[in-house]
Design a protein around this nucleic acid. Sequence first.
DNA 1: GCCAACGTTGGC
DNA 2: GCCAACGTTGGC
Length: 150
Amino acid sequence: MAKWLVKSEPGNYSIDDMKRDRVTYWDGVRNYQARNFLKEMKKGDELLFYHSVVDPIGIHGLCKVKNTAAPDPTQFEKKSQYYDPKATKENPRWFCPDVQFVKKFKNPLTLSELREVKGLEKMELLRKGSRLSVQPVSEKEYKIILKLAE
DNA sequence: GCCAACGTTGGC
DNA sequence: GCCAACGTTGGC
């Protein structure tokens, strides 16, 4: 099973929202590279849930993929901030998987902590200027992070 | 296809 | 609020 990291601004959607909802569509992603990763996700893949912008910035918990990506319904909703006039039902542009809550970490792994961890130097998240909101995580990186979270 | 202008993300 | 690092758009 592949591992991923997904970012969200907690003001928009937090790990606590995820815990309450149990399952959600990972909708609203409007970046092609991120979308392509969302489409690659398979049932059972594990996701690190990252909070951006709001302190404590870092990894706050775990989720897993419940269903592979389907067309993101918000692209067709005129009133949605995610509306895309160029998307049609016959030819959707944006896709999102079903994501299921697994757990919330007691102590989040903050970005500044993660920067200090040996073995994570190559992580996309830690790259200078990294903005990708959905990114693959290597097996090795994933293991290190889970261990830290215990 | 190039590139300037503009918009967005996200850490600080 | 600032700004670096992108991504996107649109004129040419």
